[in-house]
Design a protein around this nucleic acid. Sequence first.
DNA 1: AAATAAAATTAGCCTTACCTAATTTTATTT
DNA 2: AAATAAAATTAGGTAAGGCTAATTTTATTT
Lengths: 218, 218
Amino acid sequence: MNTLSEENYLKCIYRLWQDKGQKISPTAIADALGNNPASVVDMIRKLTDKQLISYDKKKGVELTAQGQKDATMIVRRHRLWEVFLLEKLGYHWDEIHDIAEDLEHIKDATLADRLDKFLGFPEYDPHGDPIPKANGKMAKRYSTTLADVKVGGSCRVVAVRDTTSQFLQYLQKLSINIGTKIQLLEKITFDNSLVISINGEEPKTVSQKFGESLLIDM
Amino acid sequence: MNTLSEENYLKCIYRLWQDKGQKISPTAIADALGNNPASVVDMIRKLTDKQLISYDKKKGVELTAQGQKDATMIVRRHRLWEVFLLEKLGYHWDEIHDIAEDLEHIKDATLADRLDKFLGFPEYDPHGDPIPKANGKMAKRYSTTLADVKVGGSCRVVAVRDTTSQFLQYLQKLSINIGTKIQLLEKITFDNSLVISINGEEPKTVSQKFGESLLIDM
DNA sequence: AAATAAAATTAGCCTTACCTAATTTTATTT
DNA sequence: AAATAAAATTAGGTAAGGCTAATTTTATTT
Ligand SMILES: [Mn+2]
Ligand SMILES: [Mn+2]
Ligand SMILES: [Mn+2]
Ligand SMILES: [Mn+2]
């Protein structure tokens, strides 16, 4: 069984691998976790000994089959708890991530499966991220962002790429939720700012960073 | 905020204080937690510094007002999660204690209150222990055991004093649950064994230890 | 009151998971 | 190719929360 810290590293490596598909370096992990690179090197040794990752200066850090399995199950628990907190306990979507960050580490052979059943086997979490099934499979992850939409085009919000409360609360203020319709009216060439209409309302301007953080379906 | 270990010590001291009402010594705590007395002495120092307990060789360990408040809220969370696991996720009553032992440490300002509301503000947990309210108050704790019943008398099971799976599974085997009616047919004077009838069925013999572990209402 | 037993405490170690500072290796400029 | 910068690693340290073994204090017997 993995410790809390080991689990957080596995999940972090899994996320970096999914997000970029690029070489995962000790510094990348350190940045993502807010830890010192020296600490990361320690943990890389530990996880390598446990055969959960492999590390090669050329290829960077990679999850082994077992590491991938373990990471997927942590993500599964995280997202299921998020659904529970939002749907059953009435939290808002900017409050659930941090609590799920702790709940995901509760280990019991049947807990995740029971929770899954209790929640009605949800496909996506409240942020639009797919929830891995017990067998590790999961629905497709969205990848097109608002920044990819062509001027004049319309789209529907399906997920967020950033789950910080700063971003989620900003969305709240703009009345944007999963499912909200957005039309791209104009792209400011100077800094790629986007002029959008939310649910057909009056135009608002948002930054490129904002656009890249909203996942959409055309 | 208290660490996981500090919380487990607080809860342990709280339980010892409730159970015996006697002087709580370092060895008693060590026994209860399965830790070494030397480790307990370390933690006594730490909790004393944090003003959560007081320690006097004569009077033993005592919770301060704050320590009592903290301990009560841990117990609240533990028992609420137990109700959740049993009622919502369908666990049996011998499986929930260990999982709640971890869930009780999840800290969020409103989590316990939301869970309480979601569960319909239960008064007792699945083992018959009263659940502290948000203000710290709770329903009465039962204290009469099956061993206190007079021969010929009848009673109803209201709680268990032992939550080990050994005991709970034994109860399961005997078809005893919260609410089960038991009649005391005979008390063997040799070793205080009890001959009982469960729900009017044929007589069964149980030990004194068994009788002292079942809390009842006459 | 001594002797003995039990409980409490101290001293010194260990592991986990972090850290800083120094050094070495690898990449990027010039 | 050197020089420089960045990344990775090593060395050594810290705090939490355990441990064992030795010692001191307190209780219980004789
Ligand atoms: Mn986590
Ligand atoms: Mn999420
Ligand atoms: Mn616990
Ligand atoms: Mn209970």
